[in-house]
């Protein structure tokens, strides 16, 4: 397995398994006593990010997605890793735009950017690492 990071959970890169990542996050948030509204925003960001990895990165059943959820002080960090192809250059560098009201897709990036405070992407060897950070205090 080529992962350099050591995720707390790994799941197959399938849309159904994204639910397991969500369940893991929810348990971590419950254990940490995180407010429901904050936990929901984290869940939305996580699910959209993981869906993107499955739908636009790894093909069905082609690999794994790793996740770590770490609380430190007033910040939570979600680190996603996968062994799919690199993300398109600049994908996370530009502000996400809202699509047309009647668009049936294309809202994932916008939702992610609204639900967390920072999104960082890097390539480590043959692994994609996506780091989502959110302050736990009200904005």
């Amino acid at each position: 397995m080529p992962f350099r990071a050591d995720p707390q959970i790994r799941v197959p890169a399938t849309l159904l398994a994204v639910r397991d990542l969500s369940g893991f996050l929810q348990k971590r948030c419950a254990d940490a006593g995180i407010d429901d509204s904050i936990a929901l925003e984290l869940d939305l960001a996580l699910v959209e990010a993981a869906n993107n990895i499955v739908q636009h990165g790894l093909g069905p059943d082609e690999g794994e997605i790793g996740l770590s959820v770490d609380f430190a002080g007033t910040q939570v960090t979600m680190t996603l890793s996968d062994n799919g192809p690199p993300a398109p250059e600049g994908l996370f560098a530009t502000p996400a735009q809202a699509p047309d009201h009647f668009a049936e897709s294309g809202r994932g990036m916008m939702i992610m950017s609204q639900c967390v405070d920072s999104i960082e992407y890097r390539r480590e060897g043959d692994v994609n690492v996506l780091v989502l950070k959110k302050r736990l205090l009200p904005r």
Binding site: H101, F102, A103
Partner: peptide, 15 residues
């Protein structure tokens, strides 16, 4: 819970 894909289905229905 609903994600953007589920929401997209509702938009497709409306269209």
């Amino acid at each position: 819970f609903m994600d953007s894909t589920g929401l997209g289905v509702l938009v497709s229905l409306l269209k």
